[in-house]
Amino acid sequence: MPTQLFDLKDRIALVTGASRGIGEATARLLAEQGAHVVLSSRKQADLDAVAASIIAGGGKASAIAAHQGDSEALARLVTEIDQRFGRLDILVNNAAANPYFGHISDTPMGMVDKTLQVNVKGYFELAALASKLMQRNGEGAIVNIASINGVTPGPMQGIYSITKAAVINMTKAFARECAPWGIRVNAVLPGLTDTKFASALTTNQEMLDHFLPSIPLGRVAQPNEIAPAVLYLVSDAASYVTGTTLTVDGGFLS
């Protein structure tokens, strides 16, 4: 077993939703460990800023805008990675949508469609495209960012929770069928994290007063506390780990 278990030198890593939050923290950490990180999200300018910061810090990064809910954009993204680098070693499926907060019975069908498109279909399509590219090199690692809501539905977050439960099962399905290709597929389940994505909860004192007593560590996570779980799962330290979920929730589900 190599002594540098977390060394990602010469590996190409694609991180979606990488312009902020957990995606940005993960991209920065993977770059610190030597990976050339391909950053992706909807807005090119935001990606360019993060990529420039990583490069200024001595890392390697490229920025390619693509919407996780756009099938053609995802296909172009993977094709461009293939053309530029000829390989893909790591995929972190992180970009997600949570457009509706309210009673599940009042969820507009348009919101259902959007959440399913991004969180389920988008994850599935990108994992399928990436795994085929990884297959050529006989190895790879995929990490899907799910949520503790996929285990215990969050209040007023019904459709989002449903999609994250699907991501957990999707992870297991890809893990089983891609293992013969040397590809490992796992999921990280963050708890409540201080990101713009979760700001409806983290900036609402009433909501915090409701959630914090249920978290044994008594606080909200920071994005850089989620990223190391991803690093572990994509690294050689997890060479015999596939089809699993790693919960990072301050003890919420314990």
Rank of each mutant, 00 (worst) to 15 (best):
D113S: 06
M111I: 00
A97Y: 12
D106F: 00
A45S: 15
A75H: 13
A73Y: 09
Q44V: 05
E80H: 06
K114E: 15
V50A: 09
V78I: 15
K43L: 14
A52K: 13
S131L: 05
A96P: 14
A97C: 05
P108C: 09
E125R: 10
N93S: 15
K121W: 00
D106Y: 06
L91G: 00
A95D: 01
L116K: 04
R87Q: 14
A130F: 05
G59P: 05
A130L: 08
I55A: 11
N137A: 13
A95L: 11
G57W: 03
K114T: 11
V50H: 13
H36F: 07
A56V: 10
S71G: 10
S62F: 03
F101H: 13
I54S: 02
V38E: 01
A75V: 13
E72M: 01
T115S: 11
L77S: 02
S131N: 13
N119F: 05
Q117A: 15
G102E: 04
S62G: 11
G138C: 11
T79H: 14
G86P: 08
A51S: 14
D70C: 11
E80N: 12
Q135C: 09
V50Y: 14
V120N: 04
R76I: 01
D106T: 12
S41V: 06
G59F: 00
I54T: 01
R84G: 03
K43Y: 13
T107S: 06
Q83A: 15
F101S: 07
N137F: 11
N98L: 09
V38N: 04
A49E: 08
M111N: 09
N94A: 13
Y123D: 04
G102S: 11
V118Y: 04
F101Q: 13
R42I: 04
A130N: 01
Q135N: 08
A128M: 05
V78L: 12
H36Y: 07
A127C: 14
S105W: 07
R42Y: 11
A49N: 02
V92R: 07
R136I: 12
L129S: 06
E125P: 01
K114M: 12
E72Y: 10
H67M: 07
L129A: 09
E72A: 15
D82H: 14
T79N: 15
K60P: 02
F85G: 02
S62T: 15
G122T: 13
A63T: 10
V118S: 03
P108A: 06
A97M: 03
G86I: 13
H67F: 12
L77M: 05
N93Y: 02
G69M: 06
A56W: 00
G57T: 03
T115K: 10
M111P: 00
D89C: 07
K132L: 11
Y100C: 03
A73N: 06
I64D: 03
L47G: 00
G110C: 10
Q83H: 15
I54R: 01
V92E: 05
K60G: 07
N93W: 05
D106Q: 14
A73G: 10
V112P: 02
K114H: 13
R87A: 09
V112E: 02
Q68R: 02
P99K: 03
D113W: 02
S40D: 00
E125T: 15
G69C: 04
V120Y: 01
K121Y: 02
G138I: 08
G58W: 05
H36D: 03
I90F: 12
A73D: 09
